[in-house]
Design a protein around this nucleic acid. Structure first.
Length: 487
DNA sequence: CAAGCGACGAGCGAAGCTAA
DNA sequence: TTAGCTTCGCTCGTCGCTTG
């Protein structure tokens, strides 16, 4: 039964269709299926298990041909299909300059992808030790499920079934590319051209720089013409307000709050290595104002930190340097290894620890699992203090803030400028990265670097990744080597 | 006037996956 | 840890209709 999706049987396999979903689209679907079956168009596999498996369908040999488009649809049915499409795609009209590139020119090498999917499935079912691991659930991933998921993603490309929606919480744009297994992206081409993606190295720690120097520089400039209400500035303000209220619970009017938010930034208080930094320091009047930072001058940023406040800034300066040179993980790996031992001498472990650092509640600090977080706190006390202040009321505030910043910069600032200046450059955003064709690689990279420097204050480290089929072959070869090594 | 029924949509929880 | 996505099976309430 685990071989339900075995590749040998795939050719003549029944396609499972959930009756409830069919019913959503066609009311009396049962009559339709019966008709199709009687006319010899489809064959139904009537076997289904309540609560587990739905009925399967396939075309008869005679009708197993290429699809022809429908033309004579009733208007009502057409409207209904349209409603379904809108429900799937959400409000993305205002992001048309990105979503328009999701079209039939974006092609997937299906032969190669199928080979990769099948090979992975076979290897990982035969050799359980080679399965992928889910660190959060602390268990191995199920090859059967991964197979199904990958097949689905590929099938949607085959059908040119492109969907896109912007989530209303952190404003990320979800497309066929964002939830595609990253290895499969190597088989993508646009009009036959290979693609290249430009990623912001450690993007969460990078966008957090904004919070370390000033939370309020970002403002939405485009008017909310569409039904989508994006108020990025408000998001930031609400979060800041949530921990400001503690100090001034009495009469903080909305306007005062707004003024405070637009004028103030986080303070740089002198670090006290023995005691906690007081939460009141957030409201310290002696603070650095973003207006004082001359972002035009590339060299001035670090300088300014040194000038304006005390030795403590060396800590924030160190953080910023590490993040913007792409050395953050390497540094932490070394730090954790020195303080905690060899268990942290591994990049993925460090990555997970960084995720914990950013996203866990403040209470998560004294148990053994939080050892690395504690080390970070010791070496970056001010950075830690600011993060924990934001997480004080709700630990989700920091990730929300950072992801909102990310989305805003990528979608509204960078992609928009690319669309304006390079109207023929195909672009595909994947949360913290932008993919384009080789032709536009340098120009896109330049725009990303410039815009990020202008908005955050310092340019990030940008990582260039070529999507090429050889990566998939290499991945399969690596698996082969692992098998032969294991014996 | 209720009761019943099919259609249908919303919403839930569970599983899987992705990104960070 | 966070934020999403899909799929499936399920419950529940509403609507419009028919039936008793």
């Amino acid at each position: 039964m685990s071989k339900q999706f075995n590749k040998d049987r795939f050719e003549d396999e029944y396609v499972p269709l959930h009756s409830g979903k069919l019913q959503d689209v066609i009311g009396d679907y049962k009559a339709c299926i019966e008709y199709l079956e009687k006319s010899g168009v489809v064959v139904v596999n009537p076997q289904y298990i309540v609560g587990e498996q739905c009925k399967g369908y396939k075309f008869t040999d005679e009708y197993q041909t290429t699809a022809a488009p429908f033309i004579n649809l009733k208007q009502q049915f057409r409207n209904k299909l349209k409603r379904h499409e809108i429900a799937r795609n959400g409000y993305t009209e205002h992001l048309n300059y990105i979503t328009k590139w999701l079209n039939s020119d974006l092609q997937l090498n299906h032969n190669l992808v199928d080979e990769w999917i099948n090979y992975n499935h076979d290897v990982k079912t035969t050799f359980p030790d080679l399965r992928d691991y889910n660190h959060i659930k602390q268990k191995y991933k199920c090859p059967e499920e991964q197979y199904k998921f990958s097949k689905l993603v590929a099938q949607r490309f085959k059908n040119n079934d492109f969907t896109h929606g912007q989530d209303q919480n952190v404003y990320r744009l979800h497309t066929n590319l964002t939830n595609m297994p990253s290895m499969m992206r190597n088989a993508l081409t646009y009009k036959g051209q290979p693609l290249v993606s430009i990623d912001i190295s450690n993007s969460h720690p990078y966008s957090a720089i904004l919070l370390l120097i000033n939370s309020f520089r970002l403002k939405r400039t485009n008017k909310p013409k569409t039904a989508l209400q994006i108020d990025f500035g408000k998001k930031v303000q609400e979060t800041i307000a949530s921990f400001k209220q503690e100090n001034k619970p009495s009469t903080t009017s909305q306007q005062n709050l707004l003024d405070a938010c637009t004028n103030n930034s986080f303070p740089f208080k002198e670090a006290d290595n023995s005691s906690e930094i007081d939460i009141n320091s957030i409201n310290n009047e002696d603070r650095l104002n973003i207006k004082d930072i001359k972002v035009k001058d590339k060299g001035s940023y670090i300088m300014l930190l040194k000038q304006s406040v005390s030795p403590i800034n060396s800590e924030i300066e160190r953080y910023i340097k590490l993040v913007t040179t792409g050395k953050f993980y390497e540094y932490l790996m070394q730090l954790f290894t020195t303080e905690l031992g060899e268990g942290f001498n591994d990049r993925t472990t460090v990555k997970i620890e960084v995720l914990k650092l950013f996203f866990t509640a403040n209470g998560f600090l004294h148990q053994p699992d939080a050892a690395a977080k504690k080390v970070f706190k010791k070496h970056f006390p001010t950075v830690y203090k600011i993060f924990s202040a934001i997480k004080k009321n709700d630990k989700a505030d920091l990730p929300k803030l950072l992801q909102s910043i990310e989305s805003y910069l990528i979608l509204d600032v960078i992609a928009k400028r690319i669309a304006r200046e390079l109207p023929h450059a195909p672009i595909f955003t994947i949360h913290d990265s932008i993919a384009t064709t080789i032709e536009y690689q340098d120009a896109v990279k330049k725009i990303m670097s410039e815009e990020l420097e202008s908005k955050i204050g310092i340019a990030p480290h940008l990582k260039v990744e070529y999507w090429q089929e050889s990566n998939i072959h290499k991945n399969m070869q690596d698996l082969k080597n692992k098998i032969s090594n294991a014996g």
